[in-house]
Amino acid sequence: MAGHSHWANIAAKKGVIDKKRGKLFGKLSRAIIVAAQHGGGDPAMNLALRYAIDKARKASMPKENIDRAVKKGCGELTGEKFEELVYEGYGAAGVAVLCDILTENRNRTAGEIRKIFEVHGGNLGSTGCVAWMFERKGLFLVPTENVVEDELFEIALEAGADDVSANGDVFEVTCSVESFQHVSEEFENRKIPTNLAEISRIPANTVDLGVNDGKKVLKLMEALEDHDDVQSVTANFNIPDEIMAEVIAD
């Protein structure tokens, strides 16, 4: 899981999320719209909608924006119809990259995503070329300074988590997609803060990167994250701690 947790921590350190809060709200709105389209507007009966709304609230998205997105998804307000896609490709050093997409125009999006890969030394691949390397799981990053490992381990496993491991200044907690909501609620009830709490794609294996390839991959990740149609990006890279500072210096 190093690729995803590395990117989450790097994005936070570089201020990527805060700089793009307006863009983030747009992406969260799309997720809410699509969830409501598929399963209705009641989050108690629609877990995908509940997850999307919880994620929006944690990002401090205004309630009126959330309500408007639900109404669009339910057809009470006019809005675009979004299609869910997964784009797969490769970055520098053969790093596998997955992009979760919500778009109203797949042809436009495909061309733009292909161009981003090419500009940053990668290439967009065919369906299924790298997806087999990843497994969908719930992922939480808990700052080590805020919790004792033994206590976190006990709470997480009792809530349904599969594993807890230390990775630098965070603990990584993983769980099944089905257990995600329960683990999330338990952490909230116990007032355990998280840097990240989401359903993610976890790589089975990772590629260690040096400085040059590390910089290329991070620029690719940032460019993909910046695209309006991209909901999330994950990859199977690992940047050793001893070269991390040099890689993120730009």
Rank of each mutant, 00 (worst) to 15 (best):
K71I: 01
V142L: 08
A197V: 01
Y90K: 13
C99P: 05
K81W: 07
K13G: 09
F180I: 12
C99Y: 01
D228L: 11
T144N: 05
K72T: 15
R108N: 14
Y90C: 01
E149Y: 14
H38L: 14
F117L: 00
E118Q: 14
G121E: 07
L47Y: 11
T109L: 04
L24G: 10
E246K: 12
M244Q: 12
H182I: 12
A36V: 06
S179A: 15
E104R: 07
N189S: 11
G128Q: 03
L24E: 15
P203T: 10
V247H: 04
R21C: 06
C129A: 10
N123F: 13
I155Q: 00
K115V: 00
V97K: 02
C99W: 02
L98Q: 11
F140P: 10
S60W: 10
Y51A: 11
V130S: 03
T234D: 08
A156F: 03
G41C: 03
A36M: 03
I155E: 06
A31S: 11
E83V: 15
K137F: 04
F153I: 04
I199A: 01
E149D: 02
T174Q: 08
A56Y: 07
E145M: 11
K71A: 14
G122N: 08
T109G: 05
R68I: 09
E198C: 11
F134V: 09
Y87E: 08
V170N: 05
F140W: 14
D54E: 14
V247P: 09
W132G: 09
V173C: 01
G3P: 09
Q231H: 06
A110S: 15
K63F: 05
S232V: 00
E84C: 01
A131N: 10
P193F: 04
V95R: 03
I101P: 13
K14C: 00
E88N: 07
M61L: 11
A204G: 14
V164G: 04
N238G: 00
I33F: 01
V130C: 00
V173A: 00
E222L: 02
K13H: 08
T194G: 01
I66N: 04
C129L: 00
E64I: 15
I192E: 09
H38N: 15
G94C: 08
F117Y: 08
N212T: 14
P43D: 04
L24Q: 13
E198V: 07
G39L: 02
E188C: 02
R68N: 14
F153Q: 13
A110M: 15
G79W: 08
E185Y: 11
V233Q: 00
F117H: 09
V16N: 01
M61P: 09
I239A: 06
L220Q: 08
T194R: 09
V86D: 02
V217K: 04
P143W: 07
I10N: 02
G79P: 06
R108I: 09
K23R: 06
V16S: 00
D54P: 00
V97E: 08
G111V: 06
F171I: 05
F171Q: 10
L141N: 08
G94W: 04
E76P: 02
S29L: 00
N167G: 03
A197M: 12
N195A: 02
F187G: 07
P143R: 10
E178P: 01
E118R: 13
E158Q: 14
L220E: 02
V16A: 00
L196N: 11
E198R: 13
N189M: 11
I66T: 12
V130R: 03
D241A: 15
D100W: 05
A223E: 10
